[in-house]
Design a protein around this nucleic acid. Sequence first.
DNA 1: CTGCCTCCCGTAGCCACTACGGGATCAAGC
DNA 2: GCTTGATCCCGTAGTGGCTACGGGAGGCAG
Lengths: 154, 154
Amino acid sequence: MLTKVRGLAAGQLAKAAGVNLETIRYYETIGLMPAPPRTPGGHRVYDDVHVRRLAFIRRGRELGFSIEEVRALLILNDPRQGSCAEAKDIAATHLTEVRHKLADLTRLESILAASVARCTSEPLAPCPVLDMLGPETSSPRAGMTTYDRSLDRL
Amino acid sequence: MLTKVRGLAAGQLAKAAGVNLETIRYYETIGLMPAPPRTPGGHRVYDDVHVRRLAFIRRGRELGFSIEEVRALLILNDPRQGSCAEAKDIAATHLTEVRHKLADLTRLESILAASVARCTSEPLAPCPVLDMLGPETSSPRAGMTTYDRSLDRL
DNA sequence: CTGCCTCCCGTAGCCACTACGGGATCAAGC
DNA sequence: GCTTGATCCCGTAGTGGCTACGGGAGGCAG
């Protein structure tokens, strides 16, 4: 298990960083993780640097950064290349996106919740859930296109 | 432009329902939209039924229902097959997922916001944004699954 | 040395589209 | 009737970020 040579096998790295083994290989092919040295038999051997880098990547991904954003942050994380301002820019941009998604999801939640709630209250002839998707829903404000109306729905 | 035969060309349907033309063809290949009649030259000719169905699909997608969920809802929307209870089930399941994502995104937002805010406050030596991703940060929260990581899909 | 676990690699699949490109068809103006 | 320019056709490939599969080879404990 490579314990004597002071290195980790791929599966051990995977467990240590909480990342799928296949994902590590994927990160290597796209150049997010460096290609590590190998045993004579061709098995990858990782060290602490790899563990920290992979953990960094994983946290970035969990926080919703794209692969390319993580790649940029990794470069900025290098003390020689470090630039807090650039890192902040990336995070701020991402934060804006997250807030947009939050707003959309919140609207979505209220629409869905309302439909489902109306469904439980009374046995109405037209199903409120299907009605929500149907063409003749609610107040048909004049001058609005179908497009506008369903945007309104969000 | 097919106005005399009382039908819509593909592009007109696209505009009427607010859906990309290519997307309509895609929906046809996966059987979500029926194959419409054609002109002698092979162009598709749509009618009001298609418009309504496509609008239904589009609204379902906007509300975050998967293609398969929309497919199920379309069947339930048929008066002969109509089942409000089943429609409600689908919507309720989806609502639960939406609430999960909302919770995750909210957590995300506060972490990102805190990092970015700390970054503006003072010129600290260790960048708070990069620190957030570094190895010695707070609770590692293992057990995050693909589900959490796929928050971006919204 | 034998069994069993792990790792190797390449490829294909997932979702829901979007993009591309070269050719055919349509409606309208002249 | 003919040309023009917009529209539409179709198939294929690409997107992001992995995950799954499968047959074979390496590694290590008993």
